[in-house]
Amino acid sequence: MNLRIKKNANSIMGIVLTAIVVIPAIIGIFWTPYDPETINGSLKLAGASWAHPFGCDNFGRDILSRIMLGSSTTFLIGMGTVIGGAVVGTLVGALTGFYGGVIDEVLMRFNDVMLSFPSLLLALTFVAIFGPGKYRVMWALAIAFVPSFARIIRAEFKRVKNMDYVKAARLSGASDFRIMYVHILPNTVKVLINAVLIGFNNAVLAEAGLSFLGIGVQPPDASLGRMLSDSQTYLFTKPSYAIIPGMAIIVMVLGVSMIGKEVE
């Protein structure tokens, strides 16, 4: 299968939009124009200027620097969440879909219980158990995202395992492990990639939601959700403080979902 991205307006827009947020985010991991955590009283809620293109926040910290660092935090949490969720979900989905029987019943009923809670609520529960913080949020979200991946991959494995070419693989003496991960898994990549892209968006929104509620990323760490939460008190005095991280979230999610639409 060829994962060709159709060169049309939609996918180019998607890539451009994603790049607008992701490139500064990647730079932000290594370098920001100012230290994003240095407090400067004289610049408190300063407006846009050449030195500070997006102005400064209520502690006089450079908003551009914080946006760069914040998007990278949000981006990494999103990535970590989908990668963790997809890897564990694929393992569970592969086992249950391939073997069926008792393993399937036990794991999938447990899965159903997990799925019956909204994933944000589930993540909230795990945050309550683990405590807040950058990496703990990632763990909580990853666990909350496992069931939906497991379900999707299980359905794909169930579909593919009855194909003649899997029978042929079995007949060439391949072990179960080899059949699952060498013969079947590549056939589920198309569905998996779509699920990963949608999952990434949900993870970004979930991180923003958790941080906005104050139980996600903790100060002084920056994340887009954290910045939104900090800015709500100044919504009327300095609306750009809230609008900029909000826009960053929108652009990232929109860009990724546009790419997701075009991946066939």
Binding site: M1, M163, D164, Y165, K167, A168, A169, R170, L171, S172, G173, A174, H183, P186, N187, V189
Partner: peptide
């Protein structure tokens, strides 16, 4: 034994080869 001493070919050539390999 399978694939070494016993082999099999199937009815439907369209589905008996893995489409992604």
């Amino acid at each position: 034994v399978q694939g070494d001493k016993i082999s099999m070919i199937f009815q439907e050539p369209m589905t008996s080869l893995n489409p992604v390999k």
